[in-house]
């Protein structure tokens, strides 16, 4: 008898609970834009925040409402942009693929050191230590790896005391750009091959003493450039990526090898 009462009462309870949930599920259903879910599906799902929204779901909502461009995801790049464009029924504008670039090549060999540092490995600590860190150059990479810790894609590493970006892994989310206290890292077009790998505004002789591959602002690159794409300003050469054709003349003429040619 007891068993029957138990079975029946539990059964009724379960039925009631189920019905109640079913009814309230219908009554309280929230209309979700079906496109939003599809867009979210197409996004990479890293939740890196590189697009400026709160994670992938935030971007999906914004795209579905038309508040963000279909190719707003820097991680997914063109393929994801096209997929989302298909979902939204729009054409994806072509977007230039970017990649992060560290404007310094002052590794252990090339850059001079004033002293050896054994404290906490954190770039932002270098503001508080004598001479702005052990390296003589105050403009370059500190090599303590704040950018490495910021990167979600394992695309940037400290090699021999200087941060190096793995171009293929880099999704240009911009996390390392924010993390670098020296503002050394910038997002540049992936296809461009010529970069000035130095950030030093020191005058020629001073820069030369501190690092073997410092830009000394001699202006040879500026004079040799056939398309007027490289300019020296404040003792530092700068490439105009809109004009640069990638001939590599400046690279071969640079006496300090401060301009690098990057094979794709």
């Amino acid at each position: 008898m007891n068993i029957i009462i138990a079975t029946i009462s539990i059964g009724i309870l379960g039925l009631l609970v189920g019905t109640f949930l079913g009814i309230s599920g219908n009554k309280l259903a929230v209309e979700v834009n079906p496109k939003e879910e599809e867009v979210l599906e197409a996004l990479p799902g890293n939740n890196c925040g590189g697009c400026g929204f709160a994670g992938c779901s935030g971007l999906a909502a914004a795209i579905a409402e038309g508040k963000a461009p279909v190719n707003a995801c820097p991680v997914g790049g063109e393929p994801v942009g096209e997929k989302i464009a298909a979902i939204m029924g729009m054409d994806a504008e072509k977007k230039v693929r970017l990649t992060a670039f560290v404007r310094c090549q002052g590794d252990c060999e090339k850059s001079k050191r004033d002293y050896s540092y054994t404290g906490q490995a954190d770039c932002s600590m270098m503001t508080f230590v004598p001479g702005g860190g052990p390296k003589s150059c105050n403009y370059g990479c500190l090599g303590m790896g704040n950018c490495v810790r910021a990167c979600m894609f394992d695309a940037i590493h400290i090699l021999d005391g200087v941060a190096v970006v793995d171009k293929d892994k880099c999704k240009a989310c911009g996390k390392c750009v924010e993390a670098c206290p020296k503002s050394l890292i910038e997002l540049i077009p992936y296809d461009n091959v010529v970069h000035v790998a130095c950030n030093s505004n020191d005058k020629g002789p001073v820069a030369m003493k501190k690092c073997d591959s410092a830009c000394i602002g001699c202006g040879i690159c500026e004079k040799n450039c056939p398309v007027d794409a490289i300019k020296v300003d404040d003792f530092l050469a700068k490439v105009d990526y809109d004009k640069c054709v990638g001939c590599g003349l400046c690279v071969s003429k640079c006496p300090k090898k401060a301009i690098v040619f990057d094979e794709i």
């Binding site: 009462s9 539990i10 309870l13 309230s24 309280l28 259903a29």
Partner: peptide
């Protein structure tokens, strides 16, 4: 009243799971 206190564990699990589900739906909407 039904003298089936020994079923408390099962019933509580059932009720709590359903309750959380309901609260979730309710909050999502309201």
């Amino acid at each position: 009243p039904l003298n089936i206190e020994y079923l408390q564990t099962i019933v509580f699990i059932l009720v709590i799971a359903a309750l959380v589900q309901f609260v979730e739906m309710f909050l999502k909407k309201k």
